[in-house]
């Protein structure tokens, strides 16, 4: 049984956001992390020393592993930020700051 069926979810209509320019459909209420997991994406940043991929680890905002750029704001915790229609998500490298 999938999680939505388990709780008999009747979500509102899905909306569109972009991940690195690609459209993805998101159910209302989901965070960036939940939306990306639902898309099968499990990593969205690379570390600043070794350039290793990272995604969700603690899931509750403590570990800061899931940092991501949302609407041009770098280093947002994907597990905390809920999505709204039209949001732009960008994967990030290193410090998350350009230059």
């Amino acid at each position: 049984m999938n999680p939505l069926d388990l709780v008999r979810a009747e979500p509102g209509p899905a909306f569109t956001v972009t991940l690195d320019g690609r459209d993805i459909e998101v159910l209302p209420g989901r965070t960036v992390a939940a939306a990306l997991w639902a898309e099968g994406v499990t990593s969205w940043r690379t570390t600043r020393d070794a350039g290793r991929p990272r995604g969700v680890f603690c899931g509750i905002g403590v570990c800061f592993d899931c940092l991501v750029t949302v609407n041009d704001r770098p280093n947002q915790r994907a597990c905390l930020v809920p999505l709204a229609p039209g949001d732009t998500i960008r994967t990030q490298e290193g410090t998350g700051h350009d230059d």
């Binding site: 600043r48 280093n75 290193g94 410090t95 700051h97 350009d98 230059d99």
Partner: peptide
């Protein structure tokens, strides 16, 4: 002392 998040050299 205040310490910020890591940044590129600005």
């Amino acid at each position: 002392v205040l310490v910020t998040e890591p940044l590129p050299r600005r």
